[in-house]
Design a protein around this nucleic acid. Structure first.
Lengths: 150, 150
DNA sequence: TTGCATCCGGTACCTAGGTACAGGCTTATC
DNA sequence: GATAAGCCTGTACCTAGGTACCGGATGCAA
């Protein structure tokens, strides 16, 4: 009776209903109560948890990290408050800044290629004055993921 | 006799040998000649092609886009030179710049959360002064991919 | 009580870019 | 000619974050 059905929660949080079960499997969403017939009944907070998950994801945390963050939150209520979250946020900020630096270098390279008027990839590879980075394969990707901008 | 074996090409370009066949399937690498026994024999340019692929990938192009870029390169040699590449580079630059803007906003948010001393995700979600973006689920991800920083 | 909407679990599939393995053939060297 | 190294095809698997489909059960209202 009291409690939200999975469809209602999914709709309220703007996620797919399957995603709820997926998050439950992944440990992000606590297992809710059930009706006698086995249908899930969520407390209203579940919607908040979903919003939190989405916000954290948006900030660059993976689902595993979010699960960890939530778990830490559940246990910190005794002991020192919030050091874990702040530490992880700082680490994530460094990660994001590194990614920005990486992408900035990529943008610079693209601008250089445009300025130089590169006309053909294969032709450019033969020219020494071409700004495209044909050499640093191994080294360029060390320290940051192989730059995919979806 | 003359020509490189797949292992040599893979080693020279710093990629896995399976990756060569994968690129061949994807149309990035032309099918090379074969020995009478069926072993691949690559021309020396294959290594250059691989370097070009890796460089383009590094600049944010997907394999499909790279395949397209190389294909365009092969055909432009009659007709107007290099308009395709420059156009795509400009589009990719815009994409990368958008991604940088997105990540900058994320970094700002993380900094705000650190400044505000956010201690717990779930607690913060209840506080109106928390800078974390718990609301804009649908809207925040429209126009850019759901921010994953690997 | 009947009908329809909703939900259940389980499994398969998707993108992107590869990587790994199995079983068998070829090439090169001694 | 034997043996080791290398290569062949085909298929399965990996990460991450979901999404889709199926057959069957449940919930709720008229």
């Amino acid at each position: 009776m009291n409690g939200l059905r999975s469809g209602q929660v999914a709709h309220a949080a703007g996620v797919n209903q399957q995603t709820l079960r997926y998050y439950e499997r992944r440990g992000l969403l606590a297992e809710p109560g059930r009706t006698p017939g086995g249908h899930r009944l969520y407390p209203a907070e579940a919607v908040t948890v979903l919003r939190v998950i989405k916000a954290a994801q948006r900030l660059g945390f993976s689902l595993e990290e979010v699960a960890d963050l939530l778990e830490t939150g559940r246990h910190h209520h005794r002991g020192q408050s919030g050091a874990g979250l702040r530490q992880r946020a700082a680490a994530k900020l460094a990660e994001v800044e590194a990614k920005i630096a990486d992408l900035s270098a990529i943008a610079d390279t693209l601008r250089a290629a445009l300025d130089a008027g590169c006309a053909d990839l294969m032709d450019c590879a033969a020219l020494p004055q071409c700004p495209l980075p044909f050499a640093e394969l191994a080294e360029a990707t060390a320290g940051s993921a192989p730059a995919r901008v979806p």
